[in-house]
Amino acid sequence: MDVRKGEVVVIIGPSGSGKSTLLRCINRLEEYDAGRIVVDGILLDNAQNINAVRQEIGMVFQSFSLFAHLTVMENLTLAQRVVRKRSRDESQEIALELLTKVGIPDKALAYPIQLSGGQQQRVAIARALAMNPKIMLFDEPTSALDPEMIKEVLDVMLALAKEGMTMVVVSHEMGFARAAANRMILMDEGQIVDEATPEKLFASSHERTKLFLSKVLHMY
């Protein structure tokens, strides 16, 4: 599987098909037994370079995973200061810019528990973007959200895609895929089963694809 710079790839498939595992292999949150993963020309094989590589990969989790003991601002600046070694002022400026971009600059001093799910996820996206990554990974970012909050998060992701960010997204949000994806991949039982542009995939004649889409698309 190749992802080119600026591409948005959306991975779909039934649960247990290995979509999240594949995503988590890219920044080595999961270990892989065979094959090669190359990110930005760097082979992901030894423990030495993994931290450096992870700085260039931003990840957004289904459960937001914000640092519960820190304010939103501290969440955004911690990695900047500790990993990218930016000054406090610089990192706060960048953080505030990103918070404005995702639409919640007024929540800078709140704690994650005080935010709604949609707000937390937008903070999580801002936190990942604060590191200026080259590629963003999204692991079912809206699956844990109330339906009303899904749109605000997808809007942020859409804007990001339009700016040219390289994104790999695991999601069930077909609307987002249709709007933003350059390519969609269907996975089943650990294998990539089908791969095409959204239009072609929705019209695919592949058996497994048709089966999956028939079960999922009735919701939209």
């Binding site: 992870r54 990840m59 989790f61 914000l66 003991h69 911690l78 990695a79 990993v83 936190r127 590191m131």
Partner: peptide, 28 residues
């Protein structure tokens, strides 16, 4: 576990994630 995962995925080393994310929460 997701706290450590989030910290590591931001590029923090094991030691940094312990010091800034895990231990502060564990101590409380």
């Amino acid at each position: 576990k997701d706290q450590a995962e989030a910290a590591r995925s931001l590029g923090m080393t094991h030691f940094q994630s312990m010091r800034h994310v895990i231990l502060p929460q564990a101590v409380r």
